[in-house]
C-alpha cells in the first residue's frame, strides 16, 4: 500500500527568535493536550509537527517568552 506525504498549513506559530527550547524549555510541548508540538531537530526550537490542533491556547498562555501564537486553523477561518 504505497503512501504519500501532503503538506498542511499549521495553526501554531513559534517565533524562533524568542523561543528558548534550545536552552531546555519544554513548556509548550508539555502542556499541549494533543501532543502536537515537538522539537525541530534542525533548529532546536519548538514547532508544530502535526496538524491536529484544538486552538485551545495553553501553549501560548504558558510560554515564558511569548514566542507562541495560536491561529485559528485555516479550514475554520
Amino acid at each position: 500500500m504505497p503512501i504519500a506525504s501532503q503538506i498542511s498549513m499549521v495553526p501554531v506559530v513559534v517565533d524562533d527568535e524568542k523561543c528558548i527550547a534550545d536552552k531546555g524549555c519544554r513548556t509548550c510541548i508539555d502542556v499541549c493536550p494533543l501532543d502536537v508540538l515537538w522539537i525541530n531537530e534542525d533548529t532546536g526550537k519548538a514547532h508544530m509537527k502535526y496538524d491536529e490542533c484544538w486552538y485551545c491556547m495553553p501553549c501560548e498562555a504558558d510560554c515564558p517568552t511569548d514566542a507562541v501564537t495560536v491561529n485559528i486553523p485555516y479550514l475554520l477561518r
Binding site: P33, L34, E52, C53, W54, C56, P73, L75, L76
Partner: peptide, 13 residues
C-alpha cells in the same frame, strides 16, 4: 461541519 478532524466541540483528546 468544517471537516477539520480536530475541530470538535469536545477536546479531541
Amino acid at each position: 461541519a468544517s471537516g477539520y478532524l480536530f475541530g470538535t466541540y469536545e477536546n479531541p483528546s
